[in-house]
Amino acid sequence: MFKGFKDFLLRGNVVELAVAVVIGAAFTSIVTAFTTGLIKPLINAIGGSDAAKGLGFNILGSNDATFMDVGGVINAGINFVIVAAIVYFAFVLPVKHIQERRKRGEEAGPSEPTDVELLIEIRDLLSRQSTKD
């Protein structure tokens, strides 16, 4: 049972898709909280036209709707880099290592069913169909 599950996980792009969707979404909220709570205040401390707004400037004088939040853009960039690093080093790199070991023959790859196993499966399916009728 576990061998089949392992074969499924390590086949093709399944790992890359799962990593991108599940792990990326899970770590995004953690990293966003980290960068918003710790990194952005440090960036905003660097300065700007208004210390309450953070690092940035107003395009049109006193119109707050035209505030360009440079600190927020830097924060989003840091967010992306942290999430990408976590995904790469925690998941993509180990899977590539396993795939390289399989290529060298150190670890067996996904197993294909034998002819006998396929015939047994077909026989069992036909048997079940005939008993339902």
Rank of each mutant, 00 (worst) to 15 (best):
N44W: 06
I46D: 01
R102G: 12
G71K: 00
G77M: 12
V81Y: 07
G109C: 10
E100V: 11
N44A: 09
G71V: 07
T114W: 03
I86K: 10
S111D: 13
P110K: 12
L42I: 05
E106A: 10
G47T: 03
A90S: 15
G48E: 03
L42D: 03
L93H: 05
V92W: 00
K103C: 00
L93Y: 14
R101Y: 00
I59D: 08
P110Y: 10
L60Y: 10
P94W: 07
I82D: 02
E106I: 07
F67L: 00
G47W: 04
G48N: 02
A45P: 00
Q99T: 14
I82V: 15
G56K: 06
N58V: 02
V73G: 08
A65T: 13
A84C: 05
K103G: 00
P94M: 03
G54I: 00
I78A: 01
I82M: 04
V95P: 10
F57H: 04
A65V: 10
N75S: 08
K53L: 14
D50T: 09
S111Y: 06
P94Y: 07
K103V: 15
N44I: 00
G77L: 15
G109I: 07
S111W: 06
A65S: 13
G72H: 02
F57Y: 15
E100C: 01
S49P: 00
V83M: 02
G109Y: 04
R101M: 11
A85H: 02
I43A: 00
F91D: 04
F67A: 01
S62P: 05
R104T: 11
N44R: 01
L55F: 14
E106P: 02
A45Y: 06
A45W: 04
F80G: 08
L93W: 11
I78D: 03
L60H: 10
R104Q: 11
N44Q: 05
N44T: 03
Y88A: 13
A90P: 13
D50L: 08
P110D: 09
G47Q: 05
D115H: 07
A52H: 12
L93A: 14
I86D: 11
V70N: 07
A84I: 05
G71E: 05
H97N: 09
A84K: 12
L93G: 01
F80N: 14
M68E: 04
G109M: 08
P113V: 09
K53T: 04
L60T: 12
N63T: 09
L93E: 13
R104M: 13
N58I: 06
P41L: 05
Y88K: 13
S62A: 15
D64I: 15
D64H: 09
Y88T: 13
A90R: 06
G109K: 12
R104V: 05
A90M: 12
I86N: 09
L60D: 11
K103R: 12
G47Y: 06
A76P: 00
G71T: 06
G71L: 00
N79L: 10
N75C: 08
P110A: 15
P113N: 08
G77Y: 02
I43Q: 04
A108Y: 09
E112R: 12
S111G: 07
A52S: 13
L55V: 04
E100S: 13
I46Y: 15
R102Y: 04
A65H: 08
Q99V: 08
V92S: 10
I78R: 06
I43E: 01
S49I: 14
V81Q: 06
A51D: 15
S62Q: 15
E107K: 09
N44L: 02
I59P: 01
